[in-house]
Amino acid sequence: DWQLGAIRETGGMVGLNFATGFLREDGKMNADTGLDIMVRHIDSLLQALGEDGIGLGSDFDGAMIPAVIGDVAGLPKLIDALAARGFGRALIEKIAYRNWLSVLE
């Protein structure tokens, strides 16, 4: 929590880690990890960082990620899950790419 507080105070952001060992409460590297867990993490990060402080981190570089995502082609499933949870289009765009663009600028 203190790390997230420091990131928020300095205007930083966090990319959601897709590695299942970080997503799951049991810490298991298990591809059978649902989108609901990812959405809960995003909810939690939003509470800690605000809507300008979160993005998608992915970890497509070799981490065990949820099978439901698979690879970059599965990202629309996560976006759809956020929309189904009631996230508005503007917030989804911030999480998906606009916050990263802000950091890079």
Results as ranks from 00 to 15, higher is better:
Leu75Ala: 11
Arg8Met: 04
Lys28Val: 01
Asp71Val: 10
Lys77Tyr: 07
Leu16Cys: 05
Ile79His: 12
Met64Thr: 15
Arg98His: 13
Leu104Ala: 14
Gly88Gln: 13
Phe87Asn: 03
Leu101Phe: 09
Ser102Leu: 11
Glu51Met: 10
Leu35Gly: 05
Gly57Ala: 13
Met38Glu: 02
Gly74Gln: 01
Met29Asp: 01
Ala81Thr: 02
Leu101Asp: 08
Asp52Leu: 07
Leu56Arg: 12
Ile65Met: 09
Gly50Glu: 12
Asp59Cys: 11
Glu105Trp: 05
Asp71His: 12
Ala84His: 06
Asp59Gln: 10
Asp32Tyr: 09
Ser58Thr: 15
Asp61Phe: 07
Gly70Glu: 08
Ile7Gly: 04
Leu82Phe: 06
Gly55Arg: 07
Asp43His: 01
Ile65His: 06
Ile69Leu: 14
Asp61Gln: 12
Gln3Thr: 13
Ser44Val: 02
Asp36Asn: 11
Lys28Ile: 01
His41Leu: 03
Arg40Ala: 08
Pro66Cys: 10
Ala31Thr: 13
Ser58Gly: 13
Asp80Leu: 06
Ile65Pro: 06
Ile92Tyr: 09
Ser58Cys: 14
Glu51Cys: 05
Gly74Leu: 01
Arg24Pro: 04
His41Thr: 02
Ala73Glu: 12
Val103Ile: 14
Arg85Ser: 14
His41Ala: 03
Ala48Gly: 07
Ile42Leu: 09
Ala73Lys: 14
Gln47Leu: 10
Asp61Met: 10
Asp32Ser: 14
Gly70Thr: 13
Asp1His: 05
Glu9Tyr: 05
Gly34Glu: 13
Ile7Glu: 05
Asp36Ser: 14
Val39Asn: 09
Glu25Asp: 15
Tyr97Pro: 07
Ala90Trp: 05
Leu78Glu: 08
Ile95Thr: 09
Ala81Met: 04
Ala83Ile: 07
Thr10Ile: 09
Leu16Glu: 01
Gly12Ala: 11
Met29Tyr: 01
Phe22Asn: 01
Gly88Leu: 10
Lys94Gly: 04
Gly15Met: 10
Val72Phe: 10
Asp43Val: 00
Ile95Cys: 12
Lys77Met: 07
Pro76Thr: 08
Ile79Val: 15
Trp100Arg: 09
Ala83Cys: 07
Asn99His: 12
Gly70Cys: 10
Leu82Val: 07
Asp71Asn: 15
Ala81Glu: 01
Lys28Leu: 09
Leu91Gly: 02
Ile69Ser: 08
Gly88Asp: 15
Met38Trp: 00
Asp52Cys: 04
Ala6Glu: 15
Ile7Trp: 02
Leu49Pro: 05
Glu93Leu: 11
